[in-house]
């Protein structure tokens, strides 16, 4: 990991709650390598979005952050807000799950895609040309006409393409993508994923992809980071982790994914519900749902340790890999 573009170390995030602060992200460390896609996997409420939001510096008011996020020798956690603003939308850009609400309905697509360029002082004619080029690159048909249209005139898939163009406008080194294809149809989803992959290859930029969809992860993530109730479970190369998971939770997720190309039985469900960070179980947070749990799992928090080259897992009794 000498070429880490972003190095997250012991990141914890507390959010204000009705009964005092809630630790929604707890002691999370991982790296995003330059030019690679890192996938952040976890169920609803596991802290994926909060982790990505911390990187771009848009956490909700009252959030307390500790730990470090190293970006080119500087710590994003302690960086002055004006310096973070300089990075946002330029070196680090974000694509959201729901382009509908991320785009402004009263402004043309072209205006929104070109915003960062205009703010950077690029002349109007040049911005227009650059926006048309960007829309063309992300596969918006007839960009000469369509850059002047409004979001409601775009389909869901086209809006997501426009979001990608907006992110690319600042020539970022890192793109954060939070569930970028969850709201889309399979056929559209496949095209957006191919687009993200192509762009990453062409531009050599890194991507932190947040998703609960393991199938998407298997297709685009070079590395994956699995989270449960705000904590790390497992880190490793995407293909290896998803084909031979070391953590019982990752394993439970993997066997729950129904296959299309062969007929699979409905998986044996995990008992109980996903743990909420507000009342995180003691010891290993997964222990109330884990078939392998023993006494030590209730009392001792398992620490991340290496189980194979490039593979780390936080479990007292990991699976053979």
């Amino acid at each position: 990991m000498t070429d880490a573009l972003l190095q997250i170390e012991h990141l914890s995030i507390d959010l204000p709650g009705p009964a005092g602060p809630v630790r929604v992200v707890d002691d999370v460390s991982f790296a995003v390598a330059a030019g690679r896609t890192t996938g952040l996997i976890g169920e609803s409420g596991s802290g994926k979005t909060m982790t990505a939001t911390a990187v771009i510096g848009l956490l909700p008011a009252g959030a307390e952050v500790s730990g470090s996020m190293w970006w080119q020798g500087e710590d994003l956690v302690t960086m002055a807000e004006k310096d973070r603003r300089r990075l946002r939308g330029r070196a680090i850009a974000m694509i959201f799950q729901d382009p509908q609400s991320a785009l402004n309905p009263t402004q043309t697509i072209g205006r929104q895609v070109g915003e960062i360029l205009r703010r950077g002082g690029m002349p109007k004619q040049e911005v227009r040309q650059k926006v048309i080029d960007l829309l063309d690159r992300v596969g918006v048909p007839d960009p000469r006409t369509r850059h002047a249209q409004y979001p409601h005139q775009y389909s869901g898939g086209l809006r997501q393409r426009a979001m990608v163009a907006t992110a690319l406008a600042g020539s970022p080194q890192l793109i954060l993508a939070d569930e970028p294809t969850t709201a889309l149809d399979v056929t559209v989803q496949a095209r957006i994923l191919a687009l993200l992959r192509r762009i990453r290859e062409e531009e050599g930029m890194a991507m932190l992809l947040v998703s609960h969809d393991l199938r998407v992860m298997a297709h685009v993530a070079d590395e994956v980071v699995v989270m449960y109730a705000g904590r790390l479970c497992e880190i490793g190369p995407g293909r290896e982790v998803l084909s031979s998971p070391a953590h019982p939770y990752t394993r439970a997720l993997v066997v729950s994914v129904p296959a299309v190309r062969s007929r699979t039985a409905i998986a044996e469900p995990l008992p109980g519900s996903p743990a909420s960070p507000a009342d995180r179980p003691s010891g290993c947070p997964f222990h109330p749902r884990c078939a392998k749990a023993r006494a030590v799992c209730r009392t001792e928090v398992p620490q991340m340790r290496q189980v194979a080259p490039g593979r780390q897992v936080a479990c007292h009794f990991p699976e053979e890999t």
């Binding site: 399979v186 989803q189 393991l214 199938r215 298997a218 998803l242 299309v260």
Partner: peptide
């Protein structure tokens, strides 16, 4: 054809 599977990724 467009559907993704975990296997064979």
């Amino acid at each position: 054809d467009a559907a993704l599977d975990l296997e064979g990724a």
